[in-house]
């Protein structure tokens, strides 16, 4: 790359050798204006290449944890290290897939445009997506069965198509750690299958995946470990529930 002005001010830290993909220690975080912390005393250590499920009811802090790791919410205390570096030291290594409600779907953008924004972290200021970026977007659209919808406005996509578009964007980013916030919430069967296939391909290629989920039944088949949250704290699941690898 001959010329680049990254958004984060020019730092692209390399992973610290031997460091876990994610290490959270004694994390406490609050949403602005809220009295009680949304997360308290959360600690976990995720080795690279692990699929971790964040399980728990609505409001238990799953999304907040993902947001804190993505750098969208500053911790009040405790620490978060991603590949041994501070949050934000290398934005392109972490992809965050938000809940669908975070996006203004009425905006007149095409599906192709939405997916291409996954390349922006590599482009930075002033650079436009080039031929390589477009080819990458094209390939990912095919992989998720979205190629015929590429020029469609995002407001005219179904919920499942929107969800696949968001996953497509995370894929073109080429991140090593993927934070997925309920990627299978309220989607059709085709989307569910496509997303599950892509997620397991990602895992096979060595990516680390942290997924917030409601679906407790598929935990043991689709994840290597599960973290249970309740009211912002890690809890011990009921007996018989899937735990998997210890993440301490």
């Amino acid at each position: 790359m001959t010329f680049a002005l990254p958004y984060s001010g020019g730092r692209h830290a390399d992973p610290v050798p031997g460091a876990p993909a994610l290490e959270v220690r004694d994390l406490r975080a609050s949403h602005p204006g809220m009295e009680f912390p949304a997360l308290d005393d959360v600690s976990l250590r995720v080795p690279p290449g692990t699929r971790v499920a964040l399980a728990g009811p609505n409001g238990s802090g799953k999304s907040t944890l993902l947001k804190a790791v993505a750098g969208l919410l500053a911790p009040e205390s405790g620490s978060i290290r991603v590949y041994g570096n501070a949050v934000g030291a290398c934005h392109h290594r972490v992809a965050y897939l938000p809940q669908r409600s975070e996006i203004d779907w009425r905006f007149p953008a095409s599906l192709r445009k939405l997916v291409a924004t996954g390349r922006y972290v590599h482009l930075g200021w002033l650079k436009r997506p080039g031929r390589e970026d477009h080819e990458l977007v094209h390939d990912v659209l095919i992989r998720l069965g979205l190629e015929t919808l590429a020029e469609r406005r995002i407001r005219h996509l179904s919920g499942g198509q929107q969800q696949r578009a968001l996953l497509a964007r995370s894929l073109v980013q080429g991140a090593d750690l993927l934070l997925l916030d309920e990627p299978l919430a309220a989607v059709d069967a085709e989307t569910k299958e496509r997303i599950s296939d892509v997620v397991s391909e990602l895992w096979q290629s060595g990516k680390t995946l942290i997924t917030a989920t409601h679906d407790l039944e598929s935990l043991s088949s689709e994840f290597d470990a599960a973290v249970y949250l309740r009211e912002g704290r890690q809890t011990v699941p009921e007996t018989g529930a899937f735990v998997g690898l210890p993440l301490r």
Binding site: S8, L72, H92, V121
Partner: peptide, 11 residues
């Protein structure tokens, strides 16, 4: 305009 969350997430 349409996805400030992603913008913040990439710095």
């Amino acid at each position: 305009s349409f996805d400030p969350t992603h913008a913040e997430a990439i710095g």
